[in-house]
Amino acid sequence: MAGATYDGNLLAGPLAEVFAAEVTVAHARCAGCGRDSVVAELAVYGPDPGLVARCPGCSDVLLRLVRTPDATWLDLRGTAALRLPT
């Protein structure tokens, strides 16, 4: 997607604090268009004021992550499902 600052690999560090699993190899299903994407392939904007990961298909927001001085906020409302291989 034109203009994306980074790819989904930038999510590895921040998300490691939330998920113990390696999430960049997880699959995320877009709640908007249903596309299945590997997290590492998402189009990511940021890092400030927060990280925004978008669907490569329809550009809807799948995930938002904000780190404030005393909390990490994770919004996954745009992710219909996250599939973590075991």
Binding site: A4, T5, Y45, P49, S59
Partner: peptide, 17 residues
């Protein structure tokens, strides 16, 4: 408080333009 002066105009974006 907590701000610094810049003469650039940084672009922050949360998505495609």
């Amino acid at each position: 408080p907590g701000q610094y002066l810049t003469h650039d105009f940084p672009v922050l974006s949360a998505g495609p333009t």
